[in-house]
């Protein structure tokens, strides 16, 4: 394939993706960056954590994404009495056949919305997180593959709310991105109030692409060119996070891989034939903000403007 062909392909994909973004933007108003990021995360085979207050449109966004990408979709509402079996499925002892038969849980679908994941106990959380990591689950000694593609979008209330079990840092690393939706701006809010019910809109959404096309796009994103100079930049970023005293722990290699994969997808979405430092800078905040904790002056940790600080400290080589 010559460069021209690649360019053409990239451009057509960009067109498709732009259309998807536009569609979603009709439902979720004024949140294009968040929409693009979540789409990037899915295309980069990552799992997404949306953290925000209730009522900001987390669930709606997930719904729309599932619909528009043509994925089959399950929602798991995490509560404090949720058991791992409720997620993964249970083997029930069948007295007649004198054997255990497996009833698959909601995890066996392409897109899972784990709603309010921090309400459940750590045991239930880790059941899902293990499934996310391995794309397969082991129940009762038997390994069962999960469908492909497999995405988890988890939503989480800010952890300072009552009755929550915040995800431990080690688990947070399994989410490729964490985004916040935030309040809509003035114009979007006005439109939201004027317009019709979002639920109605949801029903009208038809899939733009199907899951095969999605896998194709994932592959395409992986073929986006990455130069040594760019890898130098990425390594400098990782290195800085590890060596600097500003952070408690440095970024893991998995984080580095996630950044690269997401930057590729972002480049694809922007129609770049190669990954630019700007692509990294765009995706970096949502990838690292839940992985790094900044050390405060009294030796303790805070969580503010981490990505901006990191980007500012590391010159582009």
């Amino acid at each position: 394939m010559n460069t021209a062909q690649i360019d053409m392909q990239t451009n057509s994909t960009k067109g498709e993706l732009d259309k998807i973004v536009e569609e979603i933007s009709h439902v979720i108003l004024g949140k294009e960056k968040a929409i693009r990021l979540s789409l990037t995360c899915l295309l980069a085979r990552g799992h997404l954590l949306i953290e925000d207050l209730p009522g900001m449109g987390k669930t709606t966004l997930t719904h729309v994404l599932a619909n528009i990408l043509g994925l089959d979709y399950q929602r798991i509402q995490f509560t404090s009495d949720l058991l791992p079996a409720d997620i993964l499925g249970v083997s029930i002892f069948n007295r007649e056949s004198s054997s255990f038969s497996f009833h698959p849980g909601p995890v066996f679908s392409q897109l899972i919305l784990a709603d309010e994941i921090n309400r459940a106990t750590p045991r239930a959380q880790s059941a899902l997180l293990e499934a996310m990591e391995e794309s397969q689950i082991t129940v009762e000694g038997e390994t069962r593959p999960l469908p492909k593609p497999f995405f988890v979008i988890a939503t989480q209330n800010p952890s300072n709310q009552v009755g929550t079990f915040p995800l431990p840092e080690s688990q947070l690393d399994r989410f490729t991105m964490r985004i916040e939706l935030g309040y809509p701006d003035n114009m979007a809010e006005r439109e939201l109030l004027k317009g019709c019910d979002r639920r109605e809109l949801l029903k009208n959404i038809t899939p733009v692409i199907n899951s095969e096309r999605l896998i194709e796009m994932q592959k395409q994103a992986e073929s986006i060119h990455v130069s040594d100079a760019l890898l130098d930049y990425l390594q400098d970023l990782l290195e800085y996070s590890r060596r600097s005293a500003d952070y408690v722990n440095g970024l893991s290699p998995r984080a580095g891989l996630s950044v690269l994969r997401c930057a590729r997808t972002w480049a694809l979405m922007q129609g770049h034939p190669q990954v630019l430092p700007e692509d990294i800078q765009q995706v970096l905040p949502s990838i690292i903000s839940h992985r790094l904790t900044k050390v405060q002056d009294d030796g303790y940790t805070t969580q503010e403007n981490i990505a901006a600080h990191l980007i500012k400290q590391v010159p582009i080589p």
């Binding site: 060596r243 600097s244 005293a245 500003d246 050390v295 405060q296 002056d297 009294d298 030796g299």
Partner: peptide, 20 residues
């Protein structure tokens, strides 16, 4: 040289003042 906040220690331990 940048100073970084040292982590708290228990009395009698070695306090480590990180310098970057």
């Amino acid at each position: 040289i940048n100073e970084a906040p040292p982590l708290p220690v228990f009395s009698g331990e070695l306090a480590k003042f990180p310098l970057i």
